[in-house]
Amino acid sequence: MCMIQNDANVLLVNRPDRLGFPGYLAPGGKVDFPESIVDAAIREVREETGLIVKDIIYKGLDEFCEPNEGLRYMVFNYLATSFEGELLENPPEGELLWIPIRKAMDLPMQDWFKRRFPLFFNEGTFELSFIWDKNKDETIKETIKHYGMGTIRNP
């Protein structure tokens, strides 16, 4: 996932219900073997928005595990503060909107994205890890850490 920041605004995709994960979120997608994770983030932004991001900064990892199914889903999060190109007229993932950062949390978002959103703008990096038991429909363990300035903070 790559958050694109332009001054006090971010570019978000208003993803429709029919595509799954409806609501506002940052561009992102899957890594095609054997491309690197960074190259995948840059490619996904270009495919979904038409923009070519520059100065991409690693911000953190969001991980979800379901032990009964042996499933591990990882999202590598990046922030891009410069870009070139023009927005697509007909973006494939939903409407593209520049949103003021201070107003973005008021928009409809998936809970997992809302939890992650402010972390893109904090100094340092973050680690979010959740182990979820599908059979019990509950989180059995969560790890939330922020790394920066030589310290580790557990909120």
Score class of each variant (00 low, 15 high):
Ala104Asp: 01
Ser129Pro: 02
Met1Leu: 10
Leu88Thr: 13
Phe120Arg: 15
Asp55Arg: 15
Ile57Tyr: 02
Arg153Pro: 00
Phe33Cys: 05
Pro22Phe: 08
Thr151Lys: 14
Lys103Phe: 04
Ser82Asp: 05
Gly23Asp: 03
Met1Pro: 07
Tyr73Phe: 09
Asn6Phe: 08
Ala80Tyr: 07
Lys114Met: 07
Val13Tyr: 00
Lys59Phe: 00
Gly148Trp: 11
Met109Ser: 02
Tyr58Thr: 00
Ala8Thr: 12
Thr151Cys: 11
Asp62Phe: 03
Asp62Thr: 11
Glu93Trp: 01
Val31His: 02
Ile152Trp: 02
Glu123Ala: 13
Pro108Arg: 14
Glu47Ala: 05
Asp7Gln: 14
Asn135Cys: 05
Ala104Tyr: 08
Asp111His: 11
Ile37Pro: 03
Leu11Ile: 04
Gln110Tyr: 02
Ala40Gln: 11
Asn154Gln: 14
Cys65Asp: 14
Pro155Met: 09
Glu63Asn: 05
Phe76Cys: 03
Val31Pro: 02
Lys136Ser: 15
Val45Met: 09
Val75Phe: 00
Arg153Gly: 00
Lys136Asn: 13
Asp17Gln: 05
Pro118Phe: 14
Pro155His: 14
Glu69His: 04
Leu119Lys: 04
Glu44Asp: 10
Lys114Ser: 06
Gly29Thr: 03
Met105Val: 12
Gly29Lys: 06
Trp98His: 02
Pro108Ala: 10
Lys145Trp: 02
Asp32Phe: 14
